[in-house]
Amino acid sequence: MFHWLEKHPFFFAVGVFLVISFAGLVEILPNFAQQSRPVIGTAPYSTLELAGRHVYIANSCNACHSQLIRPFKSETDRYGHYSLSGEYAYDRPFLWGSKRTGPDLMRVGNYRTTDWHENHMKDPAGVVPGSIMPAYRWMFTNAADIDTAFAEQLTIAEFFSVPYNKPIPMKDGSTKIVKMGGSVAEANALALAEAKLIAADMKDQDVKDAVANGEIPEIVAIIAYLNSLK
């Protein structure tokens, strides 16, 4: 057998390749699969949050803001617990970012609130003197794309088995169910119900009126998304 292999270098190479590949897969895959499982407390995005995530991506927030806290004391003091792989289980695509012109936003939902985001998006320098972040006033008038968010939910629920409408374990031992509508109309209704809760904490009368009329401005969606980052 070995003499035969030594006389046939091509098949020897194929054999070596197979053995090393198999060993690599056995070593790497189970660990990789384990690491990328969602950690306890990580829930999929609701329709409105997903629409907000689309607004976040469309406005290139990730060009200036990272979503990745490294395990250094100086970072965890400022941003909270360092990031774990499993916390990105429902992020498609992940928004780690590669540059921090602004601060990290991985857990911004823990230390900023709806009304703060509203003031800040309207006039960043008014809240943070010297801030170079531009104002995003159009978010207060542009409508969020709930239909696309719902389409994405349907897709990821189908192809990646993202657990919508299923109990998800939370850190305190309870379970949480993230609802996904069964139809476009139902998804819009769910998003609107969520948007009403956000708008109740906002001050802009135009946004409040829009939500009362059944419209969802982008600002509501992105605040819902930012509040969900914990």
């Binding site: 230390y111 900023r112 609130t113 709806t114 904490d201």
Partner: peptide, 10 residues
């Protein structure tokens, strides 16, 4: 009356 303040566990 103004809004919510988050807790600061850190």
């Amino acid at each position: 009356s103004i809004g919510a303040m988050p807790k600061f566990e850190r």
